[in-house]
């Protein structure tokens, strides 16, 4: 393209870059500050002297954090939840997406199942009836209360179903001729060509399980059983319980800023580790989603 640079186009370039860099800084700076606080001297942090760079760099808060038994207990509960929860999510998604990807001639009850699932996705009994169900099943204070209620991610089932639909029937017909079972067709033919779609769904499942703090609060009576994000949320709880504005000023000076910052930073690390993969797949996730039913 031929471009003649006029004054107007320079000006618009400057405006575009300024706004973009401002927006980017707005996203980056608060995170950077959190990291800096975690490496700073605690009196400097308490006095709000830490900006973008740490003041008197030290690792004290991380040393303290290593000895914090409850933090690591919660960390491991979250890891366990992510592993079990994602595995169950993926297994059920795959098993349901395959029959649903068939047409009504191949699978007569397909539309009935589909409508039941869409209804379950759009309508819910609400927080309290679900809570009572989880409680009466005796799941309170167990890891299963965090995993089983969300075992079927209906939206993901629909995404994967749409992906399966795009796989040509001829592949399957050949396998049927060879006498392969449905399960074998699913795992030997469909899954290997669906790896990018599965990766997308799996990664979002991981992030969802890792980041959810509320189910931990809802279903765990004992704070010893809190998953990590619930534990993190409890660090802020002073602020959410104030009843008088003057309390807000006092809180800042008592809470242990550097240690809390270190806890938050460590709780983000697993997300950062899978972030490159997420970035690779989330656009493709959108593409899968846009396939029409």
């Amino acid at each position: 393209m031929i471009k003649s640079k006029t004054f107007g186009s320079y000006l618009s370039d400057i405006i575009i870059w300024t706004v973009l860099l401002l927006l980017t800084a707005l996203c980056f700076l608060p995170l950077m500050n959190m990291v800096s606080v975690s490496f700073s001297d605690s009196t400097a942090a308490q006095a709000n002297q830490v900006g973008l760079l740490p003041v008197n760099v030290n690792f004290n808060s991380y040393r303290l954090l290593l000895e914090d038994a409850q933090f690591w207990r919660s960390f491991m509960i979250s890891v366990e939840r992510v592993v079990l929860g994602t595995a169950l999510n993926l297994l059920l998604t795959v098993l349901m997406a395959y029959p649903l990807s068939k047409n009504t001639k191949q699978f007569g009850a397909r539309n009935i199942y589909m409508n039941v699932m869409i209804f379950a996705m759009l309508f819910s009994g609400g927080m309290i009836p679900l809570f009572i169900v989880v409680k009466s099943l005796g799941l309170m204070d167990t890891i299963w209360s965090l995993i089983l209620p969300g075992a079927v991610p209906i939206f993901n089932v629909i995404l994967l179903m749409n992906f399966f639909k795009s796989i040509p029937d001829s592949l399957e017909e050949a396998a049927i001729m060879d006498g392969a079972s449905k399960l074998k067709i699913l795992f030997k033919i469909y899954l290997p060509i669906s790896l990018p779609a599965l990766a997308t769904i799996g990664l979002f499942s991981i992030v969802g399980h890792w980041n959810d703090y509320f189910s931990g609060l809802l279903y765990m009576n004992s704070s010893a059983n809190f998953p990590l994000q619930t534990y993190i949320q409890q660090l802020n709880v002073d602020v959410t319980k104030i009843t008088d504005p003057s309390q807000l000023k006092a809180i800042a000076s008592v809470s242990n800023k550097t240690l809390n910052a270190a806890k938050i930073v460590v709780s983000i690390i697993p997300v950062l580790l899978i972030y490159p993969f997420l970035q690779k797949y989330f656009t493709s996730g959108l593409v899968i989603g846009s396939v029409k039913e």
Binding site: L95, Y113, V116, M117, G125, G126, P129, L130, V133, L148
Partner: peptide
Amino acid sequence: PGMIFLIIFSFVPMFG
């Protein structure tokens, strides 16, 4: 398997 989970954690609460 998926339907069993949906019945327990979506439809039973709806009756709730």
